[in-house]
Computed example of a mutant assay.
Amino acid sequence: MEGLFDPATRRVGVHAPLTPTIFHEDWWLQAASGGRIEQVEVRSGNVVVGRLPYLRRRHFGLLECVMPELTPYLGPAIAPPLAKPAQMAQSQRSITADLIRQLPTCDRFHQCLHSDVPDALAFAYRDFASEAQFTMDVEPAPEPELWKSLRDKTRNVIRRARETHRLVSLEPGSFVRLYDRNLHAQGRGYNYMWRQTGVPVMQAAVEHGQCRIDAIADLQGRVVAASVCVWDMSREYLLLTTRDPGSHAGCVSWLIWESLARASRANRVFDFGGIGTPGSVAFYTSFGATVRTRFAVHRTSRLFRTVDFGARKARAAWERARRHLLPDCARTTILSPAAEPAAVVVPAARPINTLALPVS
Rank of each mutant, 00 (worst) to 15 (best):
T242M: 09
R151G: 14
A225W: 03
F309K: 15
R305S: 14
L18W: 06
I275C: 04
L52H: 07
C65T: 10
T290C: 08
T164Q: 14
R155L: 09
V47E: 11
T164H: 12
F283L: 08
F134T: 00
P341Y: 08
H324R: 15
R177M: 12
P337T: 04
T293Q: 13
V12Q: 11
D26L: 04
A342W: 01
S234Y: 01
P104F: 05
A296G: 07
G3S: 05
G187N: 12
R58P: 09
V307P: 07
A348E: 13
P85M: 03
S253E: 05
G273T: 09
G276N: 07
H324E: 09
P17H: 02
L219Y: 14
V48M: 11
H184D: 07
G279H: 04
T354K: 10
R350K: 15
S33H: 10
L62V: 12
R222I: 11
Q39K: 14
F109V: 09
I216M: 07
K148C: 01
R151N: 10
Q92V: 00
R322E: 08
Q210C: 14
H248C: 05
R265C: 03
E139N: 09
S174R: 02
F272A: 11
S94A: 11
A261R: 13
R166F: 01
D127M: 13
A356D: 03
P144Y: 04
E139G: 00
F5K: 14
P341F: 07
A261D: 00
G198N: 04
E64C: 15
E41I: 04
L52K: 07
A217P: 02
S301V: 05
F272I: 14
I256L: 14
V199F: 03
A77V: 05
G75C: 06
L357Q: 14
E41P: 08
P81W: 00
R126W: 08
A263N: 06
L150V: 06
E2R: 11
V344N: 02
A79T: 02
A348F: 03
V252W: 00
T197M: 10
A321I: 04
H110M: 08
E139T: 06
L70Q: 10
N182M: 13
T354A: 13
E163W: 05
R11K: 13
I22L: 14
A89L: 05
D308A: 14
V345R: 13
S247A: 15
C211D: 02
L113I: 01
Q133G: 03
V117Y: 00
R11L: 14
E38Q: 12
M233W: 01
R243P: 01
S115Y: 05
G221A: 09
A32V: 00
D180T: 15
